[in-house]
Nucleic acid binder design. Structure first.
Lengths: 160, 160
DNA sequence: TATTGTTATACTCTATAACTATA
DNA sequence: TATAGTTATAGAGTATAACAATA
């Protein structure tokens, strides 16, 4: 189905709308993976923190907060929970004792890998319905989107 | 699951990973639009409820909860807030008095349109960096993704 | 008895503002 | 004084379990 070259009037289906709706749709599936935040489950914010720390071990709280895009106090509490669950280490930096140094524990790495694998398995299952050509179209499109949306932000970007 | 024939050990960048990372990236931008949920702001869940009700006026609480993918009690509270803000109407159904009938107020339609426009403007700005050919690639990819992810779900699907 | 919602309770996530400790 | 974090407080979003009302 190669549908709809022209949008209907009542629902303007311009490209931005299409992108937004698609992202919301897939996000719902990703989120439903991690309901309740049970022992083995990670919420999306927790997932993002662990993902960032995997690549940026030793970051300060501010750096993580900036990257994830939340207030410092929010990140402080978020990290509290991850430290309590022993997924993240939090130590005072030697050179500047106002600063904290964050990192992943082995359990943190493991939880991240497990959560990531579960989500990827569900995504992979859906993508398996596509032909190789269609998958390639999607890969190219994702790379384009990464390019225009990543722009400013440093951090855990996957395409490197 | 046919992946993992040869992923890199530390960062397996298969297609599913690429999709997940891209969705997370764009989602962050969408969410940052609606910080705090101030007077004119809608949270993503609120946005989803209003979007669904725009197309499915008269739905019951259960129907909306099913669609959005949250527990009935969660939706009850979510709708509470929207009723308080006078964005949604909630009345008892005449034929089955256990059921509630939900709909949008004029303010609800207006808030949805405003929120949607703000988010779309930011998305459009980013997409403007692409060539027409690249945009078309993205449109095709989004349609493919809608196809494989929408599948089961009825509701507010945009491609009709 | 089964279905539809609401309420009670308890988390996480989020923000702003006040505060502490360090520089 | 300025910076890095934490804590206090508040509100939304989420879930499970207990409950009420209706069928």
């Amino acid at each position: 189905m190669k549908l709809l070259d022209k949008p209907t009037d009542s629902h303007p289906h311009d490209n931005a709308t299409l992108v937004m709706d698609t992202v919301l749709l897939i996000m719902r599936m990703i989120r439903s993976e991690n309901r309740g935040n049970r022992p083995a489950g990670l919420s999306v914010p927790q997932f993002r923190v662990l993902t960032f720390l995997r690549r940026n071990s030793g970051s300060s709280l501010s750096q993580v907060a900036d990257h994830v895009g939340v207030a410092l106090s929010s990140m402080s509490k978020l990290v509290d929970g991850l430290v309590t669950r022993e997924l993240v280490t939090r130590t005072t930096a030697a050179d500047d004792r106002r600063r904290v140094t964050l990192g992943l524990t082995e359990a943190g790495r493991s939880a991240l890998a497990t959560s990531r694998a579960a989500t990827l398995a569900r995504l992979t299952e859906r993508l398996a319905h596509l032909s190789p050509e269609e998958e390639m179209q999607i890969v190219q499109a994702m790379e384009l989107l990464q390019m225009v949306f990543r722009s400013d932000e440093p951090g855990d970007s996957p395409l490197r």
